[in-house]
């Protein structure tokens, strides 16, 4: 590519070539963008987590048959053919990566964020996960078992984080508002926004 052709211009060029050959149409392009801008994102996964925290039977189904339990809430589609849910507890901490590309559970988390797609995360988290988590402020004790999962097949992994203390009185909706994508990949714990005493 010649210097001066930036990625936006390159996109425009590719789009115009596909449009004039009938291989793409503006409506489909806008539909694809709209789905991931408004309908599919970490707010979906947060609903799954909040339901699991408040409904023990749902939680049991989620851990046993992740795909079906997630579909109960209406979440399914590309990059979610077979979902496996990993439960984080005070004793076991899971963290998910895709070292070969950036596989990510789209139906529950949407498209992956920059840090997940970045070389530093993809290379380091399978070599020194405790150091990676600590760099983001997640310091795990020596007594916590760390389990790293590399998404190399079409199975997609989703972390069910620990419910934070002091949230007993919150509704399912209020609980969902606490949960971030970072919690559901396993790089941070859920925070209540209140400093620990």
């Amino acid at each position: 590519m010649q210097p001066g052709i930036d990625l936006a211009l390159r996109t425009e060029a590719l789009e115009s070539l596909l449009l004039e050959r009938g291989l793409a149409d503006t409506k489909t392009i806008e539909t694809f963008i709209g789905i991931y801008e408004t309908q599919v994102g970490p707010m979906n996964g947060a609903k799954v987590v909040a339901k699991a925290w408040t409904d023990p039977e749902y939680k049991a189904r989620l851990l046993a048959e992740g795909t079906a339990a997630i579909a109960e809430l209406g979440f399914k589609g590309p990059q979610g053919e077979h979902m496996v849910v990993l439960e984080n507890t005070p004793a076991v901490h899971h963290v998910v990566v895709c070292t070969l590309c950036s596989c990510y559970p789209w139906p529950v988390l949407g498209l992956p964020p920059s840090w997940y797609k970045d070389s530093a995360y993809r290379s380091r988290v399978v070599r020194e996960p405790r150091a990676v988590l600590a760099e983001w402020g997640t310091v795990l004790g020596d007594d916590v078992e760390v389990k790293v999962v590399d998404s190399s097949s079409e199975v997609r992994y989703f972390v069910l984080p620990e419910r934070p203390a002091g949230t007993e009185s919150l509704s399912e909706e209020e609980l969902a508002a606490l949960v971030t994508r970072d919690n559901m990949v396993g790089v941070t714990k859920v925070s209540t926004g209140v400093a620990a005493p």
Partner: peptide, 9 residues
């Protein structure tokens, strides 16, 4: 747009 166009490509 790059995301959608690549999927269509």
């Amino acid at each position: 747009r790059a995301f959608a166009v690549t999927l269509l490509a």
